[in-house]
Structures are given as structure tokens and as C-alpha cells.
Design a protein around this nucleic acid. Structure first.
Lengths: 138, 138
DNA sequence: GGTCATTTGTACGTATGTATT
DNA sequence: GAATACATACGTACAAATGAC
């Protein structure tokens, strides 16, 4: 729960990880307000810059939303995924990949992810650089 | 082609717009190297911070890719869109919305966009917060 | 292999503008 | 109007990756 400035992991990523874990664990519920940038910077002993970078990471992952003059809030998980029923028991979802997925899949920023789901089958992740795939329409 | 620090439009957004226009107009071809952050900052008379913010904007839009120690390069347009043929002459594409689309559609960062295309019909944009839609698979 | 210049990544500081409460 | 909070924008410094030599 503390920041190690000497760690191999950048400060802002440590901070993002701490907050992400709290959100995914439900300690910070959807709609809950996250401490202000100044407050968090003071609390964790970092610059406000690092807090902003961490927040931005969480915004990109769709976990939080930040409103000017108000603060940052935990987002509804479902609000960041578009789901399409395409027939034949197949669902197609679009979402922004997490940082981990981006690293694992080797895809750059600015690439959306198609998730193709069928009952009883593992999800198929389709990044934007392997485009044009046929899905049986029934 | 110049930056106006007194404009209502933030410096980094002016810079992003200039570079975006050059990319979309083909003046900067796919794979082309964009000037270094320091070079651009000097050239446009801004801080490196503003250049970085502009680059980040373009990265999120899928227009450029940045590699540490090397520089930023114009990305292949197709590389950022995943396209799925779902039958019935319908195509589904996922991509990260542009900043303009985010503003127009009123959706926050970290939300992907589903684009449903059918021959002879206008594209339908489906953001992540209006989820679960049926598309005739036929 | 080693060194060097270049370039981006991270992290701090300060100041001012703008939106919300 | 005042207080709070985020947005923008400048500065500096050092770390890490890359490529040229």
C-alpha cells in the first residue's frame, strides 16, 4: 500500500496498481469518489504529476472517470463495453484493452479490442491489427 | 501552421490538430518519422510537455506510434481497426473513437466504439455505454 | 564490446486558468 | 466571493532504450 520510489516499477504505475486493485476488489465501489490529486500526492508522498499519470492510466482502462472541478470517480464496469448479439449465440464486444492485455498481445495504444464470445467456448480476443475475420452468422 | 498561446484552444490541441491534418492529408505518410519532441517544441515555440500531450492525443486516436529511444511514427490507418464479418452483408468494426467523436457522442475516455456497417446504409456508431444490441445475423 | 549522441520515459517543481461547489 | 479540484503549460533533471560508430 506504499510507494517505493526506488522500485523498478514507475511510481505512477505503482499508484495505478494500488487504486486498480482497490476498485477491482470492490473496496472502491462504482460511483465512489477517489481522493483528489493533491490529496493523493500528499498521502503517497509523490508529485501531483505522478498521480495524474496514474489517473490517466485508469481512465484509459475505463475504470475511472474524471470531471474537472469535481474529482475522479469509479466507473460502472459495464459502461465501458459495447456488446452486440450477432445471432447464432455469438456475442461481440468492443472495449479498450487493459495495459496488461496491450503488453501481452503486443498491441499499441489507440487499438480497440473485439471480444467474440460463444456459449461454452473461451473468449476470442481480436486486436485491431489482425483485421477482417469471418464469424459464422448462425 | 503556427501556435497561438492566447487561443481558446489549448496549445497541445492546436499542435495535435496541425499534425493530425498533415497525417490525414497524406503529407506525413504511414511509417514516416515525426520530429522529435525537443525538435517540435523548439519549432513551435512550446514546452516539451505540450508536445508530449499532443503526441499522446494522436497515439490514443491510433494515428501514431511512439517508441522509446527512437521517436514517433505515422501508423497504418488499417492497423487500428478490427473488422468482423458477421454474415448478412454486415460488418462490425471496433476502434477507439477520435476526440471529436468522444465529444459528439458524449462518451468518456476508455470507451471503445463498435461500428456496424451494411451495404447501402450509413454506419451505426455504438459506444460502450449503450450496450447489448441485436443485429440480424440472418 | 564500448562509447556516444539522440530520443523518449519518468518525476519533480511552479504558476495560472477554468469548472464546480 | 471563496474554496476546492482538475486542466494547461512552462521549467528542470535524470533514467532507459536505441542506433551509429
Amino acid at each position: 500500500m506504499a510507494i517505493d520510489p526506488a522500485s523498478f516499477e514507475p511510481v505512477y504505475q505503482q499508484l495505478a496498481r494500488i487504486l486498480r486493485d482497490q476498485i477491482l476488489a470492490g473496496e472502491l465501489e462504482a460511483g465512489a469518489r477517489i481522493g483528489s490529486e493533491g490529496r493523493l500526492a500528499q498521502q503517497f508522498g509523490t508529485g501531483r504529476d505522478s498521480v495524474r499519470d496514474a489517473m490517466q492510466m485508469l481512465r484509459r482502462e475505463g475504470l475511472v472517470i474524471t470531471r474537472k472541478g469535481r474529482g475522479s470517480f469509479v466507473r460502472e464496469p459495464a459502461a465501458r463495453v459495447a456488446v452486440l448479439h450477432v445471432g447464432g449465440g455469438t456475442r461481440v464486444a468492443a472495449r479498450v484493452p487493459t495495459e496488461d492485455e496491450r503488453r501481452d498481445l503486443g498491441i499499441p495504444e489507440g487499438t480497440a479490442l473485439l471480444v467474440i464470445s460463444r456459449e461454452g467456448e473461451p473468449d476470442r480476443l481480436l486486436p485491431g491489427d489482425r483485421n477482417v475475420i469471418e464469424v459464422g452468422g448462425d
